Deep mutational scan, measured.
Amino acid sequence: TSIVNVSSSLNVRSSASTSSKVIGSLSGNTKVTIVGEEGAFYKIEYKGSHGYVAKEYI
């Protein structure tokens, strides 16, 4: 489990790309479970499925 480190919110994306669809967002200090990594993104558990967040904010 890791913590989201942002002051406002962090986009959760459908794939490991800044141009991919935003499927949701997480607020600062939210706990997330990392299940993998791809480039500059972590794959996380998100709403019963998976999403991707930028590593620099975790």
Rank of each mutant, 00 (worst) to 15 (best):
V35W: 05
K43D: 01
L26S: 01
V4W: 04
G39T: 03
N5T: 14
T1Y: 06
G24I: 05
S25M: 14
A40T: 08
K47L: 12
V53M: 04
V35L: 14
G24Y: 06
V6N: 08
S20A: 13
T18I: 13
E37A: 07
F41M: 03
N11C: 15
S20P: 01
G36D: 06
Y42S: 02
L26C: 04
E37H: 06
I23F: 03
G28D: 08
E45Y: 08
R13Y: 15
E38R: 05
K21G: 07
K55R: 07
I44Q: 00
S15C: 12
S20W: 04
S8I: 13
S8R: 14
G36R: 03
Y42D: 02
S19T: 13
Y57L: 10
S27R: 13
Y57P: 05
V12E: 01
I3P: 06
L10I: 15
A16M: 04
N11E: 15
E38K: 06
K47M: 14
E56G: 07
S2W: 13
G28W: 14
S49D: 07
S7C: 15
S9G: 11
N11D: 15
F41I: 01
S19W: 07
G39E: 05
A54I: 09
G48T: 06
S7E: 09
G48W: 04
A16S: 07
K43G: 01
Y52G: 00
A54F: 12
G39C: 06
S25H: 13
I3Y: 11
F41L: 01
G36Q: 04
V6W: 06
L26R: 01
T33R: 12
N5H: 12
K55V: 04
S8E: 10
L10S: 06
S9H: 12
G51V: 03
I44K: 00
G24A: 05
I3R: 09
N29K: 10
S49R: 12
N11Y: 13
T1W: 05
A40F: 07
Y42P: 01
V35K: 04
L26W: 03
S9T: 12
Y46P: 00
T30F: 10
A40G: 12
E37T: 07
S14G: 08
H50Y: 15
E37R: 05
V32K: 01
A40S: 10
G24E: 02
I34Y: 02
S17N: 10
L26D: 00
A54K: 13
S14C: 13
F41S: 02
S7H: 12
I23G: 00
S27N: 10
V32H: 02
G48N: 08
T33Y: 10
T33S: 07
Y46V: 02
V35C: 07
V22I: 14
V32Q: 01
L10M: 08
S25L: 14
S27D: 13
N5A: 11
N11L: 15
K47S: 07
G24L: 06
S9V: 13
T1L: 10
K43M: 10
H50R: 04
T30C: 11
S25C: 15
L26P: 00
T33G: 06
E56N: 08
S9E: 10
A54R: 14
T33I: 13
F41H: 03
T33V: 14
R13Q: 10
Y57A: 13
S17P: 01
I23D: 01
S20F: 06
V32P: 04
V4T: 09
Y52D: 00
A54E: 15
A16H: 04
T18G: 10
V35Y: 05
S49G: 15
V6R: 07
A40C: 15
K47E: 12
V6M: 09
S7M: 12
G39S: 04
S2E: 07
Y46Q: 00
Y46I: 03
K43N: 02
E45S: 07
E45L: 14
E56K: 14
K47A: 11
I44Y: 00
S20M: 02
S2H: 15
S14W: 08
N29Q: 10
V6D: 07
K55D: 00
S2D: 08
V35F: 05
N29G: 15
S7V: 12
N29F: 14
K31L: 13
I58C: 06
T1H: 14
T30Q: 11
K31D: 06
G28T: 11
I23A: 02
S8A: 12
T18Q: 11
A54N: 09
Y42G: 01
T18W: 15
E56F: 09
A16T: 05
V12T: 02
S19V: 08
G48L: 05
K21W: 09
N11Q: 15
V12P: 00
A54G: 09
V22P: 05
S27M: 13
K31W: 14
E56I: 14
Y46K: 00
T33D: 05
S9F: 13
V53A: 03
G51E: 00
K31Y: 13
K47G: 11
A40P: 09
S15K: 10
S19A: 11
I23S: 02
H50V: 13
S17T: 09
A16R: 03
K55E: 01
V22E: 03
I44W: 04
L10W: 07
G39W: 04
S9N: 10
G51Q: 01
S9K: 13
Y57V: 07
G28K: 14
T30E: 12
S19M: 10
S49C: 08
H50F: 15
N29T: 07
R13L: 15
I34F: 03
G28H: 13
Y42R: 01
G28L: 13
I44L: 02
V12C: 04
I58V: 09
R13E: 02
Y52A: 00
Y57E: 14
V32T: 03
E37F: 05
N29S: 09
G48H: 06
S19N: 13
A54D: 08
T33H: 09
N29I: 09
S14I: 13
L10A: 13
K55Y: 02
I58M: 07
Y57Q: 11
G39H: 05
S7W: 07
Y52F: 10
G24Q: 02
I58W: 07
K47C: 14
V32D: 00
S27L: 14
S49W: 07
K55A: 04
N11S: 13
V35D: 02
T30D: 11
K21H: 10
G48D: 08
T1G: 12
